[in-house]
Structure formats: C-alpha cells, structure tokens
C-alpha cells in the first residue's frame, strides 16, 4: 500500500520537522512549497500518494484552491486530505472542509496528532 504523504507547506522549518516525524513513523514523504507544485506532483503521479497534508495559507496557489481543483477530478474524489490552518482563521476551517478536505488541523500541530490523523484517515490498523 502506498504510504507516500505529500506535504504542502511554505515554511521550511515546519516542512522539515513534519517530514522527519512522518518518516520516523514509516511514511514516505514528499514535499511541495505551494499549491501549484503540489498539483503538478499529484497529477503527474496520481497513484504514488496516499494522502495530502496541505497548509491553507500558501503563496501561488492556496490550500483551498488546491483542494477544490483536486476534488474536481474523479481520481481524487476520495483522496484523503488534511488541511492545516492557523488559529486566526476560524472561517477558513469550514471553508476548507466545504472545499473538500477530509479534516483540518489547527496550528500549532502536535506531531503525534499529525501522524495519528494520517494513520486514522488511511484506516490503518494500530
């Protein structure tokens, strides 16, 4: 089963830390710095990724547009997506879910929660 997680996040620090943690949990991790890059990666290789973790605030293409674009495609209709928002953006959360994210996580994110949420969304056995 594909265990590659695509993480879209514009902060290098968070990207680094999160991928480290996910890798330690046995996931393969690929990263993208913005929505456009993420979309390219996903379309190029739709079967490669098991789940997307997307920050809502990103340069070029934000998380919302990214999710909407993905949900337009039949291939990605059921693709698990975790949207990451920062706490100031109360409104964005509902927006994210409406746009098609499976769930949102509010920054600051605890690594154990991220790993757990991914496993949960993937329906893995503990």
């Amino acid at each position: 089963m594909a265990r590659t997680i695509l993480m879209v996040e514009d902060s290098a620090t968070i990207r680094h830390l999160q991928s480290f943690v996910l890798k330690a949990q046995g996931f393969e991790v690929e990263t993208a710095e913005n929505g456009v890059e993420a979309l390219e990666k996903l379309f190029e290789n739709p079967d490669k990724f098991a789940l997307l973790v997307a920050d809502i605030n990103m340069p070029r293409m934000d998380g919302l547009s990214l999710v909407r674009k993905l949900r337009e495609q039949e291939t990605f209709r059921n693709f698990p997506i975790i949207m990451v928002t920062s706490e100031q953006e109360e409104e964005d959360r509902k927006e994210g879910l409406k746009a098609g994210a499976n769930m949102y996580m509010v920054k600051p994110i605890k690594p154990e929660n991220l790993a757990a949420n991914i496993k949960m969304l993937l329906g893995e056995a503990k």
Binding site: T13, I14, L17, Q18, V21, I109, K110, P111
Partner: peptide
C-alpha cells in the same frame, strides 16, 4: 511557537 509545540 509552531516548532516548539510540534516538538512538545
């Protein structure tokens, strides 16, 4: 803040 809470 983000990184610190991430790392606990």
């Amino acid at each position: 803040k983000g990184a610190a809470s991430f790392l606990g």
